[in-house]
């Protein structure tokens, strides 16, 4: 099922604008991660798709059908809530069977489908338990099974792993991706964890203050950010604001060339990823900065370099080279890649 937003706005009764003129398209069978800081409108977009909110303006299409005014009951979407929203008075079995009963599926077919899903989710032995007797990860799987039972063509996840321990979180993340691939559904999930979004999403929709900043593959939003927000929000980055001088911007004693059409004195923001800087040992005279400290991160180490104009850069170096860069050492910096945005 494709999902399309056309100029969607959502203004809450108090006048708070949560989504401002959002348009985007999700392709059939795609898994899209909605990424943004809190208050960026990502959960509202999910609720708009589910029908739990009506847009103030604009149109929403699911599978080529205009659903803007359809109630949630008629949209055939599955929604996994952040806090699972399991029916507390029902067993795991009855939770999963709920949607099928509402669709008046014959009893023996319900039983077959519920048992199949419980087996798939490795929950068979918990069928008669109540939600409060389960761990967070198990409740999450019940919520997923419940959402999948009526065979929705669109699956929505609202911060699905927010309340789960890191270890189980990684497993569940992979599991959700497997489920998505196996069922061939179209999925959207909300997260504020970019690692999560970049790891399992086919494409990432980056949101900021109710607007779409960029929709692209994880590589695109990371390597070709379209806005300053995307460049600084996705991945680590060093951001420096400078006026353009003679077709270049000067940072850390380096002249980085910019579009010659930008007139002198125009303020711009230069974004440099920590991995796009190379450090070379240097003596005091030719060094551009001095190592402050470094933090071991596994394969790489994050070095913090203070330049002569007292700006601190984060630079990632292979951990194997870390011994060359002890605190206090002077270094020369090479910038391989940088982005320039209007400041």
């Amino acid at each position: 099922m494709t999902i399309e937003f056309v100029g969607v706005e959502k203004v809450y009764p108090g006048g708070a604008r949560s989504v401002r003129g959002v348009s985007f398209q999700v392709r059939e069978g795609e898994m899209v991660g909605l990424l943004g800081p809190s208050g960026s409108g990502k959960t509202t977009i999910l609720r708009l798709i589910a029908g739990l909110e009506r847009p103030t303006k604009g149109e929403i299409w699911i599978g080529g059908k205009r659903v803007t005014d359809l109630p949630p009951q008629k949209r055939n979407v599955g929604l996994v809530f952040q806090n699972y929203a399991l029916f507390q008075h029902m067993t795991v079995y009855d939770n999963v069977a709920f949607g099928l009963k509402e669709k008046r599926v014959p009893r023996d077919e319900i039983d077959r489908r519920v048992r199949e899903l419980l087996g798939y989710m490795r929950l068979t032995e918990y069928a008669n338990r109540f939600p409060r007797e389960l761990s967070g990860g198990q409740q999450q799987r019940v919520a997923l099974a419940r959402a999948l039972a009526p065979r929705p063509q669109v699956l929505l996840f609202d911060e699905p792993f927010a309340a789960i321990d890191t270890q189980i979180r990684r497993e569940l993340r992979k599991f959700v991706r497997e489920v998505h691939d196996e069922l061939g559904v179209t999925s959207l999930f909300v997260t504020h964890d970019q690692e999560e979004a970049l790891e399992i999403a086919d494409r990432v929709l980056v949101l900021h203050e109710g607007r779409v900043e960029q929709l692209g593959t994880p590589e695109e939003v990371y390597e070709q950010p379209e806005t300053l927000f995307v460049a600084s929000f996705i991945g680590e980055s060093n951001v420096w604001r400078r006026p353009v001088q003679g077709g270049a911007v000067e940072v850390a004693g380096l002249r980085l060339p910019v579009d010659p059409a930008i007139p002198n004195g125009t303020p711009v923001a230069v974004v440099v990823r920590p991995k796009d800087v190379q450090l070379h040992p240097a003596d005091r005279e030719e060094g551009q900065g001095q190592i402050l400290r470094s933090a071991f991160k596994g394969a790489y180490s994050a070095c913090f370099v203070r330049t002569r104009d007292h700006e601190v850069w984060e630079v990632h170096v292979p951990s194997a080279d870390r011994h060359l860069l002890s605190p206090g050492a002077w270094v020369r910096m090479d910038v391989h890649k940088f982005f320039v945005f209007p400041a």
Partner: peptide
């Protein structure tokens, strides 16, 4: 949220 979950499930 349980109410909303029920709506999305068709109730």
């Amino acid at each position: 949220t349980q109410e909303q979950a029920a709506y999305v499930l068709g109730a």
